[in-house]
Design a protein around this nucleic acid. Structure first.
Lengths: 231, 231
DNA sequence: TACATCAAGATTGGATCCAATCAACAGATG
DNA sequence: CATCTGTTGATTGGATCCAATCTTGATGTA
């Protein structure tokens, strides 16, 4: 066993032990844990993922590991290198730009479709999530809250596949959110954006909501770009 | 073996025999063949797909079948019903609307990013594909040609993940293209749209190109909607 | 010393086997 | 006659085993 694999196993050990929800199948367990580890940065880009090591770390056979890796490959989180094992895909300015281009295309569409059908309960939930984010000290939980906030505003779009795509892109964005938070200290800027989005949605102003959202995503993109440029 | 499964096997037999390209792995072979069968309509919505039957039909074990089904589930082409087997997802007006909403969001973005970098070779290829579509008598090949035409215009967007998403949506669209072709006879309408898209791209008119593309997608959506409404 | 060749190790994809779970149906019972 | 229950059959998820392929390092030679 080489050192990289040991590192991967050690990084995973905590996550595996802390596996809160109980999964229906071992494959789900492995996939969800690996995805969390990659998106949160516990498994950094370039980390090799050998099936046998992962199977041992998870206490399962190689088969659920294999299926989980396939799923992660489909989500562009890992690359398969034939006869060398899977490796966690590297993050890069260009990959981040890709994510932002997709978000910029999809999210305003989902938002516009959703706004006319949002109700009071939705607005309350979104406001609660803003408050939660203001109070949340743990940066690693920020990704989920951010994702839930955005999704709460898109939820009434009535387009399940569109929403699934958006949610996937927001999850992919988690890999970069860490840098964003690091660069912006406590990220008050985007909380202002979030409030503006909610306000616009409340008043049913679809055009303004779209403009705010695009600017929100654009600001985040610029922050990440700057981060990559500065190294 | 129940009758539905026999139908599925029979539908597949031809495709399996005609498998032109040689695949690197059995999983790829099964996945590609099943996807083609579903997208082309050979396997209609609701068809149950039992792993054992498929394994027998493909001449492989259940394992590559299982992995292929997982991939297809991730692409929303099949649903897993626990302890009942997988079934091909039903197509519906609402699902079609979902596909169109996604295309309408993603494709203009890809087009706009690509247009400034398109070169003469790209335009020639696109024009060739239009000519090919004009001459193609086989409706089942139209989907691939249509997809390649669209992708040829987006190819220079420089956003690999965005393009992968777009290509996936265009492939999903194949399931509806059959109805579109049936409704429009020889579909000269959208060939006009295709020429207009190419013209706009050639002259570098990003705004007009986007407008034409949106109208193109909107027209197709309306045709499909009408088709579903009429039954 | 550089390079070609070959053997051993590692890694994956696939096959077969086993256990757990659930659906469906027959039969009993109120 | 409706309903509940127990049993059987079907189906999947997971484990273990095997074969094929590639990488890598050692070794011999020009």
């Amino acid at each position: 066993m080489n050192r990289d694999s040991e590192v991967a196993s050690l990084s995973l050990a905590g996550l595996i032990a802390a596996s809160g929800p109980r999964y229906r199948t071992a494959t789900e367990f492995v996939e969800a844990t690996l995805r969390t580890a990659i998106l949160s940065g516990s498994l950094g880009g370039g980390t090799p993922l050998r099936q046998e090591d992962l199977a041992e770390a998870f206490g399962v056979s190689r088969m659920p590991v294999r299926e989980a890796l396939r799923q992660l490959e489909a989500q562009a989180l890992i690359d398969f290198v034939p006869h060398k094992g899977a490796v966690v895909t590297e993050i890069s300015a260009s990959d981040a730009a890709d994510t932002y281009a997709i978000r910029l295309a999809l999210e305003p569409a989902a938002f516009a479709l959703s706004i006319p059908h949002l109700n009071g309960e939705d607005f309350t939930r979104a406001a609660d999530l803003i408050a939660e984010m203001d109070a949340e000290p743990d940066p690693s939980r920020m990704g989920e809250l951010n994702r839930r906030f955005h999704m709460s505003l898109y939820a009434r779009a009535g387009r399940p596949r569109l929403l699934a795509l958006v949610e996937g892109q927001l999850a992919a964005f988690d890999r970069y959110l860490r840098f964003h938070l690091a660069a912006k200290g406590r990220e008050h800027m985007s909380q202002d954006d979030h409030r503006a989005m909610l306000d616009a949605a409340r008043s049913g102003d679809t055009a303004r909501a779209g403009a705010v959202l695009k600017s929100h995503i654009g600001t985040a993109a610029a922050t990440i770009d700057r981060f990559f440029a500065e190294r």
